[in-house]
Simulated scan of single mutants.
Amino acid sequence: MDVRRLSLDDLPACTDLAISRDWGAEEHKWRLLFAVGEVYGLDAPDGDGLASTTVLVRYGLDSAVASMVLTARRYERQGLAGRVMRHVLDQAGDRIVSLHATALGRPLYERLGFETVGRVDSCRGLFRGEPSGATRAATDADLDPIVELDAEVFQTDRAPLLRRMPAFHERLRVLERDGRIAGYGGAWRNGDYLVIGPVVAQDVDQARALIGDLATGWGVPVRLDLDTRQEELTAWARANGVDQGFPNALMVRGGRLPGDRSRLFTPFMVALG
């Protein structure tokens, strides 16, 4: 049984595995991961779907993100997740690799050389805040400046991912200062809730403005994946109804994450950083 590169033909098996682990189907998200990343898996020995999966998304020549580490319950504790993860790390080569880990997954990643460098609280709830009026809807002409701003903040090339935002997101907004884009953010549907991410801004006031304008008017719960070091923003989100959360550890292998992480207020999604 060898680890193999999966294709879109394997999407139903991926969503079936995710549903079986209570992650939800998340087909919209899986399709993006197939488009921008490399999806790997092990076929189940009994012939029934996939036994395990992992996704690798490369950014430029120096960094990558791993995600969607899933194993079928009937194959737990047989080393399959570690096997697929080691294959993914081999593919990543010398890149710095990051991931978000639940408490259940942390021991595996620590054995593979990952270190915890931060914590993200994934919070959900009906947003009760008001729109700021300080942002505007993004246009096609804004995409190049967004890519340039993102490269400045992350110090790596995420252009292939960002150029898919207009098709992937249901709402995309920018904030301008002195005639230049100073921040951007997006909102996308994931099942019965709305994910707010990414949000990149110069400071917490800009982040609140973007989140407020992205999160209002939907009538469904929103999800904010908030770095716990952003205490002011976390307190604001909880005061506005987004207060039911669970923790994820931000873990890194191979070096220090590049860029200015203080300007990243919510990730694109935890699967993509």
Rank of each mutant, 00 (worst) to 15 (best):
P12W: 04
R4C: 10
A249K: 03
V120F: 02
A137S: 11
A66I: 15
A201M: 11
G241L: 14
F114Q: 02
L42I: 13
E176S: 12
F246T: 15
A271V: 01
F154N: 09
L250W: 02
A249M: 12
F265C: 02
W236N: 04
P160M: 04
G212H: 00
D90P: 02
T156G: 09
P12S: 09
D260N: 06
A51E: 09
G49F: 09
G255W: 00
R163H: 06
A235K: 08
L99I: 01
D227L: 05
A209M: 04
P12R: 02
G37A: 15
G118R: 04
P107R: 08
R74I: 07
W236P: 03
A134Q: 13
D10G: 09
A81G: 15
D225L: 03
A138H: 00
A103K: 14
L42W: 07
L226I: 11
R163V: 10
E27G: 13
R261L: 10
W236R: 03
S67M: 08
V222G: 02
T139L: 11
A138C: 06
C123G: 03
V84P: 02
V220D: 05
L80N: 12
H169Y: 07
S67T: 08
L175R: 02
M68G: 03
L61D: 14
L99W: 01
A207H: 03
L33H: 05
A137K: 08
R261P: 00
L126H: 10
L50E: 11
D144F: 04
D227N: 03
L17M: 05
Y59A: 02
R164W: 09
F268P: 01
A35V: 06
T71Y: 10
Y75S: 12
D205K: 07
T139K: 03
G113W: 04
T216C: 11
M269D: 15
A72F: 06
E76G: 12
T228W: 10
Y59H: 05
G82V: 12
L104G: 13
R229W: 05
F127M: 10
